[in-house]
Design a protein around this nucleic acid. Sequence first.
DNA 1: CTGAAAGCGCTTACAG
DNA 2: CTGAAAGCGCTTACAG
Lengths: 342, 342
Amino acid sequence: MTVRPMRSPRATIVDVADAAQVSRQTVSNVLNRPDKVAPATLERVQREILRLGFTPHASAQQLRRKRSSAVGFEVNPLGHRRMGHILDEFLVELTVVAPRHASHVVAFAPDPDDVIAAYRQILASGLVDGFVLADTRHTDPRPGWLMEHEVPFVSFGRLWDLPELQCWVDVDGRAGVRAAVAHLVEAGYEQVGFLGWPAGSPVGDDRRAGWAEGLHEAGLTSPGSDEESSNQDLDEATAAAERLLGRLGQGAAIVCASDLLALGALRAVRNLDLEPGRDVGVVGFDDTEVAAAMQLSSVRQPVAEAARVAWDMLLAPTSPEPQAQLLTPTLTVRRTSIRRAP
Amino acid sequence: MTVRPMRSPRATIVDVADAAQVSRQTVSNVLNRPDKVAPATLERVQREILRLGFTPHASAQQLRRKRSSAVGFEVNPLGHRRMGHILDEFLVELTVVAPRHASHVVAFAPDPDDVIAAYRQILASGLVDGFVLADTRHTDPRPGWLMEHEVPFVSFGRLWDLPELQCWVDVDGRAGVRAAVAHLVEAGYEQVGFLGWPAGSPVGDDRRAGWAEGLHEAGLTSPGSDEESSNQDLDEATAAAERLLGRLGQGAAIVCASDLLALGALRAVRNLDLEPGRDVGVVGFDDTEVAAAMQLSSVRQPVAEAARVAWDMLLAPTSPEPQAQLLTPTLTVRRTSIRRAP
DNA sequence: CTGAAAGCGCTTACAG
DNA sequence: CTGAAAGCGCTTACAG
């Protein structure tokens, strides 16, 4: 047996075949249909594969199989802060799961002026078989285009414009907020107000609905005056929270549609010389770094699970059509929703 | 991956050749060595390429050229919060620049128990030609292994263990902190203290050195008592900042090694019923979301530039050996370092 | 300047 | 169960 030099050219299927005294097709069979190979041959070939450190060349497989075993994931320099890095986390989890499906993830960044062109290009080059979408929005051109060209895809986030499409996984924000309300009531707060975004955003409206449902389930009624809204801006959120606190009585709590809004609520509480948690409960949404740093209780999206589901959906047989999935978030409880120190 | 058949089979080089009435080699020449093709032929072929929407098949090119035109980038589910998402940003910028080099980025997540195995595997499969490393640390096995196997790579972050290697780009944290000190002195603060990490981390020590240099340049001397250290923990940082403020006089400022430490400093300031900015200056490091939300001045790493440099270095000729590059960060000035409201 | 030939490394019917 | 043949889509010397 020849000793392989340090920087040797990769071993190919032919090298393995020669070493194991079989044809290269048999090596391929060992790799792809081991049940069709005699046990003794199988073992001999596998030993040589291990010994030579052979790994099939991805390009050759892709070319022959007419399949890349890769999915594309769009990353976005402008938008990637919008969701508090949830999407960065999602990409990581997508990548973690990929090997389980003998696949990999290709990141790409479209020109903002022609997003579809990037999808078209990467698809035409055969670099990916399909896509995982994220950050879907109203009038998003991507799902329609992919649909029309019969490109396999799954979306992390509901497909707002195409309610008939079921190829998505999302997080049930409504249930998360509902759970936060229940938690706050349980913790002893007597009223629960809501600090949300201005009406009209599907995600924000969904979270607001969760608050209303939570109140209802807890037997509390909303006087209609215990909510305020603000854009994603700290000063605006602080002012809104101050107005809200002015109307809520003693021992109240505020559930917020985002951690940033919650940060405004914390400020408002302190501006009144009150102590978050002890005097006023506050819960945020997304459990970002900000939340952890500020000891803010927050609703956490199950990102890793969403990534797993996305893969499963993408690889599932096309019929029966996969069902959309709504995952339930969890609540990370920290100081700002503990009414009394233990 | 189960793939539904694509609606239209892609156009191949042969389709273009037939349409343009040339051989397929000529089409290839149009693509790869246009100078070797007669102008009239060139134009005719290019017209057909456009008309058919032809894009070369990546796998076929990779197989033939023995080059993938891709770099691997390791993403890490545990470590990706350590640097305040700087690495997520870096991946995005790497991806943005990739098309300029006719390349793409393959993300991968190693098994934490055998990181090298993931590098070996992805390399053996021919999926990438090289790697961009990040989050390098002392006793990092990756640079040595890559070096030994003559795998092209560039590191975002100094190669602490291999000072002879020049294939890295990093951010000059020392210069950033020095600039922050100068800014604070300029803004009218009379003393500048430092809140850092415990001695021993190369990055932290570098930032501390920047503070000392900044004091020196400003003609201030450090009494040796105007620094404190804390781990990345809000409560610990708050306590350290309180001790520090207790020793600093009126009109002081604090430069911090991270935004989280700075958050502790902000808390300490408020605990003393003082107002950040007006009474005590505070500057953080990394300009994270937390900084933006808290109106915290902070040192910002030029991540996009680092990504550009990384690509250039990776593709640069191997001789002369590329020079390591240290980029200068910028200071994002917000409320916490403005002494008086305008 | 253009085209015929060889081949990158693999997989998949198919014949033996 | 095993191997000879064809071919995935491209590029690159090379001959004309």
